[in-house]
Design a protein around this nucleic acid. Structure first.
Lengths: 199, 199, 199, 199
DNA sequence: TATGAATGAGTCTTCATTCAT
DNA sequence: CATGAATGAAGACTCATTCAT
């Protein structure tokens, strides 16, 4: 997982995997019965856990839309903490056109659940709870763009001036806030909120 | 560019590039003087144009922060329309850890300009114009996650139920809105806005 | 035997043999103590039976040369009926230059007996009972070419037009006749012979 | 051709071919574009020549059946003199069930011409010119068994006692005679024939 | 400038063999 | 007796690279 997360599928050879595991390339082949099935195993035995972690728990009736979003974001960050190889793999090998794990991994996406989120948001939009320019059906994509993408690219943006000390927790708070109220932040009338990172 | 965008750098051979160009692999090698310098050329002669398109124009003093963001988003979408190979390449080969064009392309990022945006946002946050949970320094990353990422992954999410007819224009509007006010949408007191996609 | 007859020695792996036998490749190795000795066993425990069947029975004093030949041909066909794997193996792995069982199997050939047949024929030739252009010493080879070879290649020639219904019995009669009197058939003065395949 | 004739297709590696040709295995692959097409080339560029040599010349109206057979046998021996790799290859890789060149090479066999020979013989048999036990349709197979087979197996039978000095010419004469009149030789009434190998 | 021929290094894969159990 | 795990050696194949032309 580490190698694939770091270099991508195409650039990861069986020999490298074997070396990292302290075995011979022949064993890797013997064990997984060929490269295609090794990739199957990557998806079925590892990537699937991530999907389960994010989607499996019965969705408790959320108090509000914002809370529902925050929960989903929370689960993604949580899963990524446990399975840090997922964000880069997702970003490189699953999401984009021609990703080498795409076909294998797309089945993991609970299209139903995602559609459900879309329905929920579309209804909310009809009730005026959601901005008119929002596309409810691709809010899920935006969530990915605000969670998996920054998680996968920490290495780059951490070098941006002033970003060195931003933690994963900060990132989660940032994504949740951006998703809820955008840069504008909560309405002026909102009650005082707990300050983060007081230090 | 098309091949790299579609399959990634590692999976694109000089022979494929040559075939697509109607020349011999030997000529590709002769012309670019080796694979490393071919990748250099990809970055220097193509990817750089994208960066120029997004960042080069003198930043006219924006009327508001929201407008500044909308302009940046607009430029990205505009550049992506002209150079559709950029989003997948960015997502796969530049942004993530171990991206094969990362070292070469990172120099293109105008760290200064990005830092400037960060400064601007940090100041705005101090003035209370920006939500307290926002991290000004990585707003740029969020913008990427709301523009380049969905552009690079249209192939996947277009299959989500209800997302078939979402256009790039819709996507831009969605990203701009989300960035400005989040899902919550503009404050209640806001004046009526032009409806999108009336048909 | 079936696998070797069908694909040849070089193309038959220990794993295939094991699979067909319902055991593991490791057991095949354990049992035969390596590939060379597996091939030894093929020769010593199977192929040898064929040779025994053809040559072992005490050669009853034949009434005539023709009868002696018919007997030998009969024994070969008989053995091939019981051990149908032999003709292909003989043709591919024993007879030709570089056959993979050649060295092992050649010892099975009773050179003495074959030489005896040669002596017999040479004497007959000297007495004028055998055509002057016949080479007595390689009549045995011709017998092989008229028995083992067609038996090993039935799959091909059965597809020849009109050859579909030719049985092994027909083949034996054909070989015996050809050997005795060639295409010309028995002398005109010969007494009527029993017709074959009356149905 | 030499390697395949000597060891068979399965036991001949690209590396051996390369070594014999004084080039690298990579070149063999480059030149033939893979093993399957190397075998195609073997068949199309070499084996086909043999078939042409044997079958192509317009069949001059033969004076007799015996002459027709002698001509066919003569052509086979002639072709084998020029292309000595053919008999072993034919015997191992084309004729038997599971031969590795079988599918590729069977198209070379002029089924029509062979069927024609069959027709001719069948008619002759009806006229009583051919023995009743002969199967006209597989006389062609017998011819192969009396020509290609002994040619492919010289290495073995040359070691038979008394066979050391038998030449290819002797073999041809032997095969022709056996085919014409069997071991029995020409009818007693036949006119004197030229003696062979007077020395 | 352009290429066909050629290759070294490295890919996945196969397979007989080993060995602890 | 029997096997699963493991491997070395070798196989076909790939690809960037070289080079004479």
């Amino acid at each position: 997982m580490a190698l694939i997360a770091e270099r991508g599928v195409a650039a990861t050879t069986a020999a490298e995997i074997a070396a990292l595991a302290g075995v011979t390339p022949a064993l890797v082949h013997y064990y997984f019965r060929g490269r295609p099935r090794l990739l199957d195993a990557v998806v079925d035995e590892r990537l699937s856990r991530f999907a389960v972690h994010v989607f499996a728990p019965a969705p408790t009736r959320p108090a509000s839309l914002a809370e529902a979003m925050a929960t989903l974001v929370g689960r993604i960050f949580d899963a990524a903490r446990r399975m840090p190889w997922m964000p880069p793999i997702w970003i490189r090998e699953i999401a984009p056109e021609g990703g080498l794990l795409r076909k294998r991994a797309l089945a993991l996406l609970p299209t139903g659940a995602i559609g459900g989120v879309g329905d929920l948001l579309a209804a909310a939009q009809r009730r005026g709870e959601i901005g008119p320019d929002i596309e409810p059906r691709i809010v899920f994509v935006s969530i990915m763009g605000l969670t998996m993408f920054p998680l996968a690219t920490r290495g780059v943006w951490r070098r941006l001036p002033g970003a060195e000390r931003i933690t994963v927790g900060d990132l989660q708070r940032h994504a949740t806030a951006l998703l809820a109220t955008g840069l504008a932040g909560p309405r002026a009338s909102a009650h005082t909120r707990i300050r983060r990172r007081s230090g």
